[in-house]
Design a protein around this nucleic acid. Sequence first.
DNA 1: AACCAATGCAACCGCTCCGAA
DNA 2: GTTCGGAGCGGTTGCATTGGT
Length: 336
Amino acid sequence: MGRCPTPTSRDDDENNNLKKGAWTPEEDQILIDYIQAHGHGSWRALPKLAGLQRCGKSCRLRWTNYLRPDIKRGKFSKEEEDIILHLHSVLGNKWSTIATRLPGRTDNEIKNYWNTHMKKKLLHMGIDPTTHQPRTDLYSCLPQLLALANIKELLEHNQLAQNLQYFNFLLQNNTGLSTWLSRTNSIPQMQEETDPSFANDFQLALNQESEEMTQFLGLNSSVTQPLHEVSIMNNLQTTNDHEVVGHEHGKARLTSVNSSSSLSSTVTNWNSMPPLIDSTTPTTTLTINSGSLESGSAISYGGGEGDGGASSYNWPEYLFEDSFLDRNLQEIKYDL
DNA sequence: AACCAATGCAACCGCTCCGAA
DNA sequence: GTTCGGAGCGGTTGCATTGGT
């Protein structure tokens, strides 16, 4: 179908003298002047008519991606990022279609921006940039796996009463832990079918990385209190009875949900765990508030809980920022 | 200041797809 | 149905810039 993609011998003869590489300002001006005077017409014929030693395709790309008068320059705005993200989730790599919704942006520019910025960002957030779903490969959920390893270790070291309560608290308050837990449960099982040694390696990796995760989350370090010492549970009878209602000066405020008493307590050591923040969003819209460390900045990504308006709490976005991840994960070498 | 590695981006290549003739 | 030209796409390259040592 269509024209043979490889140049014919005649084309080769014609292409021998054609210039490649970066365009000079003079070439740009020739192309601009010609198109403004005559329109581009047949791209194949254009270079000869305009007096350019370029192939038609090169002229077309130069014009559409760089010289067109309506090209918008500069950084992509937050709104543009959101549009790209949303359209990519619907359209996939249909860059030209996406570009039609972003006046002044070219498909090539959007593709480059996607590959160099947005893809990376999504990967750091644990989201597969192709499917726009949470990633299921082991490496992607390393931080969460390591957090679980730390919790598991604590549970096995005689702080069962308090830690189980706190573990349940995390699950009940929709911190994302339950999601990670269900995912990580399935990984060794899936892999075990094809690689019997994987389960052992998996456990080994968890143990080895526990130390780094401790630092990553600020748990059990000499500076911060260990998880089991966090007084979040001090005033709680059962974990189901309370929820986080806000944060003050680095401390979480909890309030009673079921009991008639207006019991409220404050987490006394905020350094021990990242703050949980409200990330309730509409279920059908996709919202990412990026680049902010402000309290309340959170990532929500599609298909929310749909729980009729109940609040959901997640770890804040800054935990997924490049700078944070780089700082905390730079020493972690994972070789699976 | 010099060097080097990482990063971003413009441009190219090889190929497919699509619509018109 | 076939051919052709143009558009579009994924992948890649090369160069300039930036940041770290």
